[in-house]
Write a protein that binds this DNA or RNA. Structure first.
Lengths: 158, 158
DNA sequence: CAGAAAATGATATATTATAACATTTCATCA
DNA sequence: TGATGAAATGTTATAATATATCATTTTCTG
């Protein structure tokens, strides 16, 4: 079993730095501006491996001394989402940083209902099953939402 | 190809009556009360093959002369959802009537972005792929959300 | 640097959902 | 059969999530 979820005590700064580096790369490639606000929001999203709501981000920005209104946060989220740097978790109305913003993928999200962490999988079996099912019913896929709630391995075993 | 979506001009009364009959059966089996309000909400949900928001239901009830507040609708939805008579479509914040309330299943939803219709699939390939992926990462499933947006066959070809 | 485009600020409001307490309805059994 | 408790619904208020619109600032480009 390969746990998708990060180990306890992992070096989270590394996650954040790597995510920032990837984000910069993607923005660069897309000729999109990774402005201060976008970087702040992105960094806040990466503060944990949980999904974060727009208003939690708003509060965090306020706590940092920024006086910011909802549209500002939602715009940053829209930007980040469109570039694939962040995914919206529909069943939580919350946002989650993407590990692999540089490749197209149908992501699948495991959401632990105990610790709240989220992990993204890019599982070809699942993707193919979805594509095949769609083909079977003559359906043209534009977007998919696959969210799986339950207990991560840590929470199930402790 | 077997289209999941109902044919144009199908006898929709039959859908509604069949759904009501199934709902009654399930409520009976569960010793749950299919009250007037619950039946009204359920019937309204089945007025189309689209997903319906709570406030659309509220408006429809108001139009019928009922003066109803949000909690009333949300309670009916909670009841129907818990019995599996209705599913929540997370990516639409809307509710959709279930065809197969009598058997446990991990449902998958195809949502046409053109005509707005929704169709539920119970595809074992998809379900198994999800279960297998979860097993592979030591994840214990509690609930799944699989929602596929795109064009239904009718809309793709017309 | 001027002008256009993009981003952010600010205000207001729409949409979705729930908390808390009051009242009514319904099943049951003494 | 009517008292009683549980379930359902009514009522009021408010929380949580999201967007529309117009003003201002920042950045890019020629």
């Amino acid at each position: 079993m390969s746990d998708l979820f990060p180990k306890k005590g992992h070096d989270h700064d590394r996650c954040v730095h790597s995510a920032l580096a990837q984000a910069e790369k993607v923005c660069d490639a897309e000729n999109a501006r990774f402005t201060d606000m976008r970087r702040k929001v992105f960094t806040l999203i990466w503060q944990s491996h949980k999904a974060v709501t727009a208003y939690e981000l708003l509060d965090a920005l306020t706590a940092e001394g920024q006086r910011v209104q909802p549209p500002t946060v939602y715009r940053a989220l829209e930007f980040l989402t469109e570039l694939g740097l962040v995914h919206r978790i529909e069943s939580l109305n919350a946002y989650f940083g993407c590990d692999r913003p540089d490749c197209e993928h149908l992501g699948q999200y495991f959401i632990c209902t105990d610790c709240g962490r989220v992990a993204e999988a890019v599982n070809e079996d699942m993707s193919n099953a979805v594509r095949k099912a769609a083909r079977g019913v003559g359906f043209t896929i534009e977007a998919t939402t696959v969210e799986i709630k339950g207990l991560c391995h840590d929470c199930a075993t402790h």
